[in-house]
Amino acid sequence: MTNNPVISARDLSLTFETNDGPVQALTNINLDISKGEFVSFIGPSGCGKTTFLRVMADLEQPTGGQITINDVSPADARKSRAYGYVFQAAGLYPWRTIGGNIRLPLEIMGYSKSDQAKRVQDVLKLVELSDFEKKFPWQLSGGMQQRASIARALAFDADILLMDEPFGALDEIVRDHLNEQLLDLWRRTNKTIGFVTHSIPEAVYLSTKIVVMSPRPGRISDIIESTLPDERPLEIRDSPEFIEIAQRVREGLRAGHGPE
């Protein structure tokens, strides 16, 4: 394995053609993400953070510049199942059990039955849902459903995890708990994580690198390397270091917003 960045964007841009004329969702994006980094994308709506994540996942096509995932194009990365993607909604199939939902990508990718069963067990343990394999989604709370959807994205061995506001619809307390669990999971699995959020505390708490973005046109206005240690109890959010980083993120957001 070389030391090349896992994700590398050069002068990336994406313009949507709409009925009201072209919309520049992304312009002049330059970013490197190394293996094992936890990178948050933060910014107001319309700043292109979700679009950028979708470009990495080959769900949107850039109109300019280059981007590579594991040194290949996003399309090839998707075909080689290089990443797991967690959407805003859990999107579990109601007709499948939790175990069955996690098995879905494994069935599609052609894992053997015994391998499927083992992997389902493993990832359920990872997200602390071992007792719920045979339950149906409606029997679980929203937070548990989202954990199951993370387990589903982890079930196959992608070493990149792309998450699009996965906890956006959950309440504060559940969110704190899931953030803690996610950090723990990241430390144990050493995955590279791209995480879209619009919560400053969430971004600062989770990330090794925070990418601040701003809208019209969608662009990166600041990249902040976190100085927080890898070991992060929830109380770290009251430390001066944490508050300082949060302050810088806030300034980045304000600068991007212009004089409004």
Binding site: L59, F87, G91, M109
Partner: peptide, 12 residues
Amino acid sequence: HMQLDQLKTYNA
């Protein structure tokens, strides 16, 4: 869309 995108990410 989300469900279809999801299957796309599995390369189904």
